[in-house]
């Protein structure tokens, strides 16, 4: 065991992992996060706690992660490179570990221009690859990036992101290989809608032996509406929503669109369960946390294993 987190234990035992996500509040509203967690508890193995996503100021991800622990839900502390330099990153990793956080997701972060403080200085002292390397060095060698010794090293299960859909596609599996070489233990992907493309990417990862070294959890986000599908297709950088998805949602009765979205998600999860090289699914129900129990039920991933 590298960190002994619940996620690591689930994956190591060979179970199909099922992870969720929660966005911290735009304020110090502890109750709102507790409310969201009620829907996730027991239905997922752990929840990603986003770090000022889309560069909007929110409660810090490590602080919200501690609230998750208090509520009995294992957090996956997301850390972006946009807002902290290597000094603050290492300090937060130590602090997070001291408070019981055992999973981290290392990300570049959305550019600051998308958020509510577009004038801010983006830090990007390290990039996500270098952040992964740094966490691994802290954990495995017990050393800071500078090479100095850490007295109690933070044992963190290291996560990284992958977007198999962004161009150039041929490079994506090599970038995955770099993240694995840097020290990623698990990968969560961008929301998947283009199934042929993810199949091809996983096939490449299998061929390169990467899936033996890293646990891959494709991202699944059920479409709530046709508007959401169109928005994601045209407005979200790096998102690949094939026309067939939109056509399929348009083909059902207006009241059944959200249900059709869940159906699509469940079909994806069913296929991922059977796919060699895929170790689980990361469910990102954007502001739809209350639907997680139903989605988990319909996807046949309940009950979650006790490990």
């Amino acid at each position: 065991m590298k960190a002994g987190s619940k996620l690591e234990r689930v994956l190591k035992a060979g179970h199909f992992a099922f992870t969720g996500e929660v966005g911290p509040p735009r304020g110090a509203n502890v109750n709102s996060i507790r409310e969201k967690l009620k829907h996730l508890k027991g239905n997922v193995d752990m929840v990603n706690v986003t770090d000022n996503q889309t560069a909007m100021v929110r409660m810090s991800s490590w602080a919200a992660s501690i609230i998750c622990i208090q509520e009995g839900v294992e957090p996956n502390f997301q850390m972006v490179c946009r807002d902290r330099n290597r000094i603050a990153m290492q300090a937060d990793i130590l602090g997070a570990y001291a408070h019981g956080i055992r999973n981290m997701l290392c990300l570049s972060g959305d550019h600051q221009m998308f958020g509510d403080h577009p004038q801010s200085k983006g830090v990007f002292d390290l990039d996500s690859m270098q952040l992964i390397m740094m966490v691994k060095k802290m954990r495995d060698e017990g050393k800071f990036l500078s090479g100095a010794d850490i007295d109690v090293k933070p044992e963190i299960f290291i996560g990284a992101a992958a977007n198999p859909f962004a161009e150039p596609f041929e490079w994506r599996v090599h970038r995955l290989a770099k993240k694995v070489a840097a020290g990623a233990d698990f990968i969560q992907t961008q929301c998947v809608y283009n199934m042929p493309k993810i199949r091809e990417w996983i096939r490449q990862a299998n061929d390169m032996g990467l899936t033996e070294k890293v646990y891959i959890l494709p991202g699944v986000t059920p479409m709530k509406s046709i508007g959401m599908a169109k928005y994601m297709q045209s407005k979200v950088p790096g998102m690949d929503v094939p026309d067939e998805i939109i056509k399929r949602l348009q083909g059902v009765d207006k009241k059944k669109v959200a249900d059709e979205g869940i159906k699509i998600a469940c079909e994806q999860i069913a296929e991922f369960k059977e796919t060699k090289g895929i170790a689980g699914v990361h469910l990102m129900p954007i502001e739809w946390e209350h639907m997680v129990p139903e989605i988990a039920e319909r996807a046949g991933v309940l009950p979650r294993p006790e490990v």
Partner: peptide, 8 residues
């Protein structure tokens, strides 16, 4: 230094 990111 190790791009491209997922936002391409």
């Amino acid at each position: 230094f190790n791009g491209p990111c997922g936002g391409t």
